[in-house]
């Protein structure tokens, strides 16, 4: 496999919780991301799955430096991306771009499509000299499957799927190396979702992009990802190749998550193993001691409350943060289509 383009180590992002009007006191921290490590290799897709509040979107915001991290490091092509300033930082922003979830709020309704996609060139004029911009924008529209003639239209004249294509074109304008996709298809209808997923796959093959693909839909992540990290309450609980995570999940949370996904095949009704979690995700302000999943885990024992399990390889050839990790087939992921 290729060398890593992005190396994230012990990344932490805490948001202070403040009370009071004039004299604000900090009474605690939302531990949105709490020690996340992973490598993203060149040309691969790393899927990040987890439920709402697990910190996956905060992770995206820290990785494009929208939010400063509380701790930890991230090396982009070997350089510490959080230490960059000035021109180096500007250069980084060219290389790492983001596609956002909601194509309705992430495009300025008062700008034409041409202006939206061309705006990155205003900030990075070295990528496209003034005269060549319109041509570049037209090329980008063509690349994402939109009609280049529509360059002067406004976002409201496009459907949801088309708007998401505009968002993708904007992210590609500066020819980035890494694209962070934060739930890029979850706001789209099923028939449109497939179009956008295929587009993301094509672009990766054609342009050699590396994706961090964040989603809550496990089927979507499986479809696009080479490797997958599962997050729970700000931590990665299990990471491995897509085959390992889906075929041999060893963390109880991953198993429960996979078991909860409805499979569109009524013939499997009643034949699939049902693992139902009780209760809700605890608050990230005051996460449980030890293993954060223990309050909902059916395997939990005393040791889980005392000692936080490390994310290390115990079984099944990939790291899992569970004292009692045990590979277990949940979905029959290797089942042939017959």
């Amino acid at each position: 496999m290729n060398e890593p383009i992005l190396q994230v180590r012990d990344l932490v992002k805490h948001f202070p919780v403040r009370v009071g009007v004039l004299f604000k006191r900090t009474i605690g921290h939302v531990k949105a991301v709490d020690g996340v490590s992973f490598d993203l290799r060149k040309g691969e897709t790393l899927g990040i799955v987890g439920e709402s509040g697990c910190g996956k979107s905060t992770l995206a915001q820290v990785l494009i430096r929208l939010e400063p991290p509380t701790g930890g490091t991230a090396l982009f092509e070997g350089r510490d991306m959080f230490a960059l300033r000035g021109n180096d930082l500007r250069r980084l922003r060219r290389d790492v771009q983001i596609v956002l979830q909601d194509p309705y709020t992430s495009l300025n309704p008062r700008m034409t499509v041409g202006d939206i996609i061309g705006e990155p060139f205003e900030i990075h004029p070295e990528v496209a000299p003034k005269g060549s911009r319109e041509g570049k924008v037209r090329d980008l529209l063509d690349v994402v499957g939109l009609n280049p003639e529509h360059i002067n239209r406004y976002p409201h004249q496009f459907s949801g799927g088309q708007r998401q294509r505009i968002g993708i074109a904007r992210a590609l304008a500066l020819r980035p190396k890494v694209v962070i996709c934060d739930e890029p298809v979850s706001a789209l209808d099923v028939s449109i979702q497939a179009q956008v997923m295929n587009l993301l796959g094509e672009l990766q093959r054609d342009l050699g992009l590396s994706y961090v693909f964040i989603a809550h839909d496990l089927s979507v992540v499986r479809h696009l990802s080479d490797r997958v990290a599962v997050m729970y309450l700000g931590k990665v609980v299990e990471i491995g190749t897509a085959d390992e995570i889906y075929g041999q999940p060893s963390h109880p949370y991953t198993q429960a998550l996979l078991s909860a996904v409805p499979v569109p095949d009524p013939a499997l009704r009643g034949r699939r193993e049902v693992i139902r979690l009780t209760g809700d995700v605890p608050s990230p302000v005051d996460p449980p001691s030890g293993c954060r999943f223990r309050t909902r885990c059916w395997k939990a024992q005393d040791v889980c409350a005392e000692e936080e399990p490390e994310l290390i390889t115990r079984v099944a050839g990939h790291p899992s943060a569970c004292h009692f990790a045990e590979a277990h087939v949940v979905v029959g992921a290797e089942r042939e289509n017959s």
Binding site: S159, G161, Q162, V190, S191, I192, Q193, A194, Q195, M197, N198, G201, D217, L218, S219, V220, R222, H223, L224, A242, D243, Y246, L258, V261, V263, P264, D265, V331, G332, A333, R335, N337
Partner: peptide, 21 residues
């Protein structure tokens, strides 16, 4: 619709998307 679905238990090639809107 059935063909355009990504599935948890099947590994994906390109999805058969429905063209148009």
């Amino acid at each position: 619709l059935l063909q355009s679905l990504p599935r948890l238990d099947l590994k994906g090639q390109d999805l058969k998307a429905i063209k148009g809107l």
